[in-house]
Design a protein around this nucleic acid. Structure first.
Ligand SMILES: [Zn+2]
Ligand SMILES: [Zn+2]
Ligand SMILES: [Zn+2]
Ligand SMILES: [Zn+2]
Lengths: 155, 155
DNA sequence: ATCAAAAATGATACAACGTATCATTTAAGT
DNA sequence: ACTTAAATGATACGTTGTATCATTTTTGAT
């Protein structure tokens, strides 16, 4: 299993900047700061935790409304993923990769909110989809989220 | 696939009553009413929707706090499942079965909140658990919830 | 440089879900 | 009837998120 080289905050920011430039969008100062908060924390944070991050690390209170808008923007640029299950947001772990990644599945530690972005094998996803279809439902998205406990957190 | 005979509200209530008696707990009037609301609606409801149900169908306003406590009780009796993903609650579809059912997986229609309680095949769950373990995480529970669209709701 | 339009951010109010705490009512057991 | 425990009610608050309108900042053309 090809382990993914951890992305450093700095190089990820650089890559994020250039990706925005390419796409004709702007990675403004506040957007960069929110992304930095997510990258540095190495875990999923809520919008309100990000306002705290700004207050504590940057010395100003970024309004929650702005954080939500900024997260929405970053998600649109595929720099951040929104985790419905945890009601938190996490930096994409593939910012440094050029290629579009497949729809990811997220393993979310419910204790510490570390997040692992994995790609479930195609045939496993197929079986899952088949099971769902047998019940006359369809998965709303192939992007799945699983409530987990990470290795640091299980006793 | 052995189709599950749909449970009627009345017989489910009867069974719920006797299950509580057996376990030495009490299915009080309000608890019965909340369970009735869930059974009749045939879909997942939020706690607040259940207070509305009482106001509209029973003529009194059951406080949200009470609804939450009652739902907690009903969940403890395995009469109701709490759906984290949808932030709603649904009557167990196996109240009429005597046997303890396996940990279920829930397919939740994100449009209409119809819920299908399924049992994913053992080997599929094993593969899934293996995938998660490869990432050094563990599923927090084998009870999974999937965001879906039901057959009534897809265009 | 100036001005107008668009983009980004801020302020405020509110909605939905949920918990904590204490008071009151109801049922159970003696 | 009395005491105790269980169930319910009232109130306040916390967290996540949206709706709306105001203000600031950028951009682009003149
Ligand atoms: Zn990603
Ligand atoms: Zn953890
Ligand atoms: Zn069930
Ligand atoms: Zn539906």
């Amino acid at each position: 299993m090809a382990a993914h080289k951890a992305q450093t905050t700095l190089s990820a920011l650089k890559q994020a900047e250039s990706r925005c430039n390419t796409r004709g969008t702007r990675l403004t100062e506040k957007r960069r700061q929110v992304l930095t908060g997510l990258l540095d924390s190495k875990k999923a944070l809520s919008a309100y935790e990000l306002t705290d991050y700004c207050r504590d690390h940057l010395g100003y209170q970024l309004p929650a409304m702005s954080v939500y808008r900024i997260l929405e923007f970053l998600e649109g640029e595929s720099l951040v993923h929104r985790l419905d299950l945890a009601k938190k947001y996490v930096a994409c772990s593939h910012i440094l990769c050029d290629h579009e990644h497949d729809l990811p599945q997220f393993l979310i530690c419910k204790e510490c909110y570390r997040v692992q972005e994995i790609s479930i094998k195609r045939n496993l996803m197929q079986s899952l989809n088949r099971s769902v279809e047998e019940a006359d439902f369809k998965l709303a998205s192939q992007q799945l989220e699983f409530d987990c406990v990470c290795s640091d957190c299980y006793e």
